[in-house]
Nucleic acid binder design. Sequence first.
DNA 1: AATTGTGAAACACTTCACAGCC
DNA 2: GGCTGTGAAGTGTTTCACAATT
Lengths: 216, 216
Amino acid sequence: MIEETPKIPQATSKRLPLYYRFLQNFANANKERISSSELSEAMKIDAATIRRDFSHFGALGRKGYGYDVRYLVEFFRKALDEGEETDVALVGVGNLGSAFLKYNFHKNHNTRIVLAFDPKGTAEGKMISGIPVYHPDVLKEKIAEYGIDLVILTVPSKVAQEVTNDLAQVGVKGILNFTPVRLAAPDSVRVHTIDLSVELQTLIYFTKNDEKASHM
Amino acid sequence: MIEETPKIPQATSKRLPLYYRFLQNFANANKERISSSELSEAMKIDAATIRRDFSHFGALGRKGYGYDVRYLVEFFRKALDEGEETDVALVGVGNLGSAFLKYNFHKNHNTRIVLAFDPKGTAEGKMISGIPVYHPDVLKEKIAEYGIDLVILTVPSKVAQEVTNDLAQVGVKGILNFTPVRLAAPDSVRVHTIDLSVELQTLIYFTKNDEKASHM
DNA sequence: AATTGTGAAACACTTCACAGCC
DNA sequence: GGCTGTGAAGTGTTTCACAATT
């Protein structure tokens, strides 16, 4: 069996959604072709990095011409599996959680929160912002029932690990963790943590020690 | 003039707030000394990385003993400037913005949102969740008046760049950008972007292509 | 003439492995 | 004996610079 994309570097993978968004914008502006240097200018990523990133997926461009915008959009759509809508569960409907419920990634055509859990929910699913909110007691069965792979975790720190264990047990594949807890999880679960206090403190540290400013 | 910390690697800097939090926990649990391997176990960061990180700040530990927890906490408190409260402004009080207002980093003793801006605010400052919310018309003068260095940006994409220009003009040093826009800013402003859709899509991509799971 | 795709160099970060010190 | 601090090796990422191609 031929492996088309033997190993995409992590750094490259993290940039794919960004490439996809920018290319969509260019496509919407009816731009037909684009060079790595034009993209570089718009995205503030070095042109050589862009070419190297793209090259991991094979020869997507044409020498002396650049890249076909439509083709690239289509290519990345598939690579990112943007065709399929991904259903997501939200666990913890506090301040941050309800902001996510209301927002529900409208802009983001492929991701949708379809159910939530919170102690103020019920076994039957009390509707909040149009999404059923269940009581944590039925978490495992509902996650399984909805076939959820991805969870956004916005619970209080003290229950984060416990909830994670339950989620791992019912086969959840990815957790976007907004809790400051360093979650322990089996290899079957990918955890990505966004710790808002840490982000703020890091920014404070960098500005106080005023190194060269930049996106990170 | 002696430069004590000639160059702290970016990767190390980003871990400092995390070290600080864990060390505080150990201090609160009345732990006197700690070895890099104990910390490693708790934080899931390689022990050699921890020792290397600490060593950038000089010889903080003692061979054959480990590190004095209290001393380290105190050291990092100073390094992170945790003594001083940092006042922060919030620009854009939508779903995400109001979640931050309500949350206001209670847990986080050194960061506090002290004012906010939104079209639904007034020139005099309408109170929301105990914080004055001003109209964007008075943004520049109020930022200057409060002496704000740090801003959390949760405005709609279309005005993000414009607001950033204003902020840069009145001397803001750091922006925590929750907008999907790649902001252009002068070197005097450090921008750190957290793009929630990108985070979700990246997680989807990683789980679909199921590489080794991990914190990132 | 323009622009890709890529070897090779440069850089950044992590990890190994151990001398040196407590 | 235990544990740090660090040279050196290893790994991952970015950038340079240019031959190849349209």
